[in-house]
Structure formats: structure tokens, C-alpha cells
Design a protein around this nucleic acid. Structure first.
Lengths: 212, 212
DNA sequence: TGTACATCAGTGAACGCGCGTTCACTGATGTAC
DNA sequence: TGTACATCAGTGAACGCGCGTTCACTGATGTAC
């Protein structure tokens, strides 16, 4: 918990590190972080457990590393998608459609990692904090985009509706992508179709004006 | 895993059983089932670990017992709320409002247990199955109520929209109640206010006609 | 361009702790006569 | 209403397994001259 991640100094170990993270993500697609043992992950990575401890102070540091990497990537993507310039002159409905499609795509593509992170988040404050930071960013972006288009919003209280709508959207997104095994209706849809339904939800909640 | 739950034969042990379940629910409000140790739960219950093994075959049986008890109760409640007679002559919008309020109330009141069950569900197929069975029931009830009012539904594909809308609703409900620690906007709302927003989401998604 | 040395990467086995599970035992409750 | 016996409830300590963590060691890579 104390010592930080120790970056590799030789090129071969760079590759080993990559193999470890890769194996970890593959194992985490199948089971929770608590269920996954270091022995199993390292076996898949083709190294011994000792090799792991050369890089990481403890087991927790592994998922924190994965977490950080993932959210950095997510943040970059979301920044692009929610860029103000990109949506200049477009309706809020279109913005939400674009956001929904990007979100569904990422959530489905990286389902394994997300699943583990979401579960772990409920126990590990570090991961929760990372996620919260990202969400705050996304919400404030959405608020900015919405306030430029406030005349489109039919919901009586837009200052509540955008953050809460985002929360609702996110819960719905998780349920229909990452934890979709229980929901055949959601699993059957293509990315585009599911994104359309989720966007419809968000737009419906905000009571956006119909497309002109 | 093999031997079933062993019911008590003396009245004093009925009470002990109650104390164990009660203590378990209290501990599970604070930590996940994996984090909670039998020693801790039994200490809170004021009995020794041996007493636990007189009733239960193993640790898993404890959460399965809690799970079964909870879903039985939930099922009974939901049957009342979704009763066709109760809503005769009322709009689908009203039905959804009623359902949402009942759901928010239960989810917030029994937050601790729900939290543990939802987390455990992702690893334990038995609990997942229980939840799925309940959801199927609720969805078919909702479908029945909706099909009697199909002229109110503006969504182009009602057969998709009711089940998927339920999934979306449930994801949103979880996020805004059980896992609300990350969402100040949701936590600040009263049961009635939050239920209204969730009902608005569901109705908005189905594109229900405005109240006449 | 080669040699000596320091540092880094990775091995493999042992360690040890936490926690679920077991078990021999004591005490309490109920039943038969 | 009491006594004898069987069964049940609960105790408390020991057990043992799984898994995270450590460590002495070997081999590989890079650096200085």
C-alpha cells in the first residue's frame, strides 16, 4: 500500500509488465478481483509470482494500475466526444445520441475490465474516487453543452435534471451492457440500437423538444 | 453446499437464528459478504461460530438464506403493487408512478441487504437466478398492465420497450439508491421526489401520452 | 571491442496469517413412565 | 410431580487450506574504462 508502482528499466521487463496486465485483464473478464489469484494471473502471463512483486508493492496495486490506465483512456475519449466545437449548431438530442453511442461501444468492448472495476469500486475507495472524478468531469461537460441549449430542455428543473439524468443514464448503461447477462432484451440489440434506446431514455427524461 | 438449511427445533434456537440473521444484515450493510467474517457476525449476534454450523452447512448458505427471505418478501410486495385490480381505470403513467415509489422506498429502506446481494449476485449464480426469477415476474406483470393500455404508449416498439424500459429503470434505481454514495444529486431527494424523477424517465422512454 | 562490475529481472520454494470448518464436550430442553 | 434418558443448542479451541508475501539465489542487461 505504501510503495508506489515501480516502473521497469529494461526493455524486456516492459514486455513482462505488459504480459502481466494483459493476463490480469483476461482473468478479470471471467472472475472478480477477489476470486482471481496472483498465481493464476502470473501463470497466464508466463511468469512467476516473484516477478510480479518486483513491479508492484501488493495485489491491490495491480487493480489500481489497471484502473488508472483505463480511466485515463476513458477520459481522453470522452473529452473528444463531449467537445463543444464538435457539437456546435447541433441539438442536445444529437449530442446525447453521440454520447450514448460512444458510451455503449466502450462499455461493451471493455466489458471485462469494467465489470471488475465496478465491483471493486464498491469496496475500494481508491477506485471509487477515480470513477467519481471522471463522472464529475463528464457531468460538467454535459451541463455546459446543455446550458447553451437550455431552451430545448422541457424538464422543469434543468439544474437537477442534467446531473441526475446522467446518473440514471449511467445506471441504465451498466445494467444493459456490463451486467447484461440477465437481460436478453438488451443483449440482443446492436450497439447502435441499444445506444438509440438509451439516448431516447435520457432525452425523454429531459423532455427534449422533438427534432425540428 | 450439499446439506440444506437445518431448521431449529427448540424455541430458544429460533431466537438465536433470528439474532444471527439480524447481525448478518447489519454487518452486510457495512461490508461485502466476502469481507464479512463469520467470527465478526457471530460476535455481534452474541453466539459462537459453532452455533452457526449447527444451522447452516457453510458460509454461503447464510447469504442464500438472506437472499431467499428478502426476495420472498419483495415478491409479495410487488404482487400487491402491480395488481391489475388496483390500477383498473388508471393510466400507465400512474401505474409507473406507483411502482416507482414503492421501489424507491424498498430499495432505500433495505439498502444494506440489497447492496450485498447485488454485489454477490455477480459471482454467485444462485443469487443471480433468484433475482432473475423475480424480475421476470415483474416484467410480465408490467407487460400485462401496459398491453391493456397500449394506446398510451408512443414508443414505436412496445414489445421491446417494456422489458428494456424495466431494465433501464432498474439500473437507474440501483444507481440512485443502493449505490448513491457517489451521487449527491440523487441522495438529496426525498423518496417521493426521486420516485417522480425515475417515473418520469420510464414514462419518457415509453413516450407515454401526457396526463389527460 | 573487449572485460569487470553493478544493477536489474525473474525463479522457485518456503513462510505465515486469516478465516472457514470441525469436533469433543457441557449444559439445556423436551419426553416417557 | 418427580426421575431417567434422549436429543438438541451452544461452547471454545484446534485444525488446515488457500493465497498473498518474502527471500535467497541465478541469470541477463547495461555501463565504465
Amino acid at each position: 500500500m505504501e510503495t508506489r508502482f515501480h516502473p521497469p528499466r529494461q526493455s524486456r521487463s516492459q514486455e513482462t509488465l505488459h504480459r502481466i496486465l494483459d493476463a490480469a485483464e483476461r482473468v478479470l473478464a471471467e472472475k472478480s478481483f477477489e476470486e482471481a489469484t496472483l498465481a493464476e494471473i502470473m501463470e497466464r502471463a508466463g511468469v512467476t509470482v516473484g516477478a510480479f512483486y518486483r513491479r508492484f508493492p501488493d495485489k491491490n496495486a495491480l487493480i489500481h494500475h489497471i484502473d488508472e490506465r483505463f480511466f485515463t483512456e476513458l477520459y481522453a475519449r470522452a473529452s473528444e466526444v463531449l467537445d463543444e466545437e464538435r457539437w456546435r449548431g447541433q441539438s442536445l438530442r444529437r449530442v446525447i445520441e453521440g454520447f450514448a453511442l460512444a458510451a455503449v461501444t466502450v462499455y461493451r468492448t471493455r466489458r471485462g475490465v469494467l465489470r471488475s472495476l465496478f465491483l471493486r469500486m464498491r469496496t475500494d475507495p481508491v477506485i471509487l474516487a477515480t470513477a467519481q472524478r471522471a463522472n464529475e468531469q463528464f457531468v460538467s461537460r454535459l451541463c455546459a453543452l446543455a446550458s447553451e441549449r437550455h431552451d430545448e430542455v422541457g424538464h422543469p428543473d434543468p439544474d437537477l435534471a442534467v446531473p441526475l439524468g446522467y446518473t440514471i443514464f449511467l445506471g441504465a448503461l451498466r445494467e444493459t451492457t456490463v451486467f447484461a447477462e440477465a437481460w436478453p432484451a438488451a443483449s440482443a440489440l446492436s450497439d447502435e440500437a441499444l445506444a438509440a434506446e438509451l439516448a431516447r431514455t435520457f432525452s425523454g427524461y429531459l423532455a427534449l423538444a422533438a427534432e425540428s
